[in-house]
Design a protein around this nucleic acid. Structure first.
Length: 357
DNA sequence: AATCCGAACAACCGCGTGCGG
DNA sequence: ACCGCACGCGGTTGTTCGGAT
């Protein structure tokens, strides 16, 4: 297929962007929108290829991206989603508000992968390596892992639909915002992820029992494992929430995220009151959906035997029901783990049904 | 003070794919 | 149906910076 000429073939500038170039690009996009990336450089007076401009814009200049250190919660989310989605950075990014896929990818490659490896977790399979650390939970972990890979296949198919819907959604959104180019106070995932994720709602309600990853999960209630969801705007985060979200992020950024050395006890402590109050109290949809999940996941990594307690804790803190505490088998843990991830994912859902699928 | 080294991150490159002609 | 363009994605490389020696 036809490929656009490479930058060096037509003698355009490469390498780091200067502030002047940034200003030019920003000014142009603010005034005209990006339009065709290919045509943009000449119109904006830049000696760059369109691809480079697009990258600079999406990864750095866009006003709606959050930069800086990843919070503990964000890191845990990345790990969980990576277990589910693999190296689909753009898909993962749709669940991490205001983070770019490139940033997430870098974070994974430079931090998270190494941490997991240090903990004895294979960052690719998310399984314990050499039976190093889980001990009595080996079998349970293996079951969870099996469930994981099974689910990943299903998720892969789901993502295709998600991608299409995200694109449609994006087009609708950009059509209304392109020229004005206001910083979208947004959760990019909300528009992108929500339609398809509604499938999960339907799926949960129906308790489908198929030879698919869905069969590894049982949702005993309409929202079992689902956490209270703050009603949001169509962009995912309401204006007030957006502010609160920023505050929460800022607070959390100061938090020690070197969780790799956290002991089991420390992790359990994190699941308790203090954390629940601090984070669940923040009323952030994204956070509320993942608090218990993240801790539970980390716990599972560090010591499978503590998962029971984690599940209970999560179940109680999330929806006030104790049903998770019944999940004492390996399968139960697997369900809990996956329910947690799905709960996190679902917590981003707006209440509207998807336009189509 | 100079050098080395690793971490972090920005940017590039090639491929796959959707879409319009 | 085919072709070519444009774009998005993921892997990889290059550059910068800070700490250690």
């Amino acid at each position: 297929m036809g490929r656009s000429p490479c930058c060096d073939k037509i003698g355009l500038k490469k390498g780091p962007w200067t502030s002047e170039e940034d200003e030019k690009l920003l000014a142009y996009i603010e005034e005209h929108g990006h339009g065709s990336w290919r045509a943009l450089p000449s119109k904006a007076g830049l000696q760059r290829c369109g691809k480079s401009c697009r990258l600079r814009w999406t990864n750095y200049l866009r006003p709606d991206i959050k930069r800086g250190k990843f919070s503990l919660q964000e890191e845990q989310t990345i790990i969980q989603l990576h277990a589910l989605l693999g190296n689909r950075w753009s898909a993962i990014a749709t669940h991490l508000p205001r983070r770019t896929d490139n940033e997430i990818k870098n974070c994974w490659n430079t931090h998270l992968k190494k941490r997991l490896a240090k903990m004895g977790i294979d960052p690719v399979t998310h399984k314990a390596t050499n039976g190093a650390l889980i001990g009595t939970a080996d079998i349970k972990s293996a079951k969870a892992a099996a469930s994981l890979s099974h689910m990943a296949q299903w998720e892969s198919a789901r993502l295709e639909a998600e991608g299409r819907l995200a694109q449609e959604s994006k087009m609708r959104t950009s059509a209304s915002t392109q020229t004005s180019l206001h910083p979208q106070p947004m959760n990019p995932s909300a528009s992108a992820a929500s339609p398809c994720l509604d499938v999960l709602h339907a799926w949960q309600g129906a308790e489908i029992d198929l030879e698919s990853p869905t069969s590894t999960l049982t949702f005993t209630g309409s929202n079992s494992g689902m956490l209270p969801i703050q009603v949001t705007t169509s962009l995912g985060i309401s204006k007030s929430n957006s502010t609160m979200w920023q505050q929460t992020c800022d607070e959390l950024e100061g938090e020690e995220s070197e969780w790799k050395f956290l002991s089991k006890q420390q992790l359990q402590g994190l699941e308790g009151k203090e954390r629940g109050e601090d984070i669940i109290g923040s009323e952030q949809p994204w956070f509320t959906g993942m608090v218990g999940v993240g801790a539970g996941f980390t716990d599972m990594l560090l010591d499978g035997s503590s998962v029971h307690g984690t599940s209970e804790c999560w179940g109680e803190s999330s929806n006030g029901h104790a049903e998770h505490s019944n999940q004492v088998s390996g399968d139960g843990e697997s369900k809990t783990y996956w329910s947690g991830i799905l709960g996190m994912v679902n917590s981003e859902l707006p209440s509207q049904p998807p336009p189509l699928l």
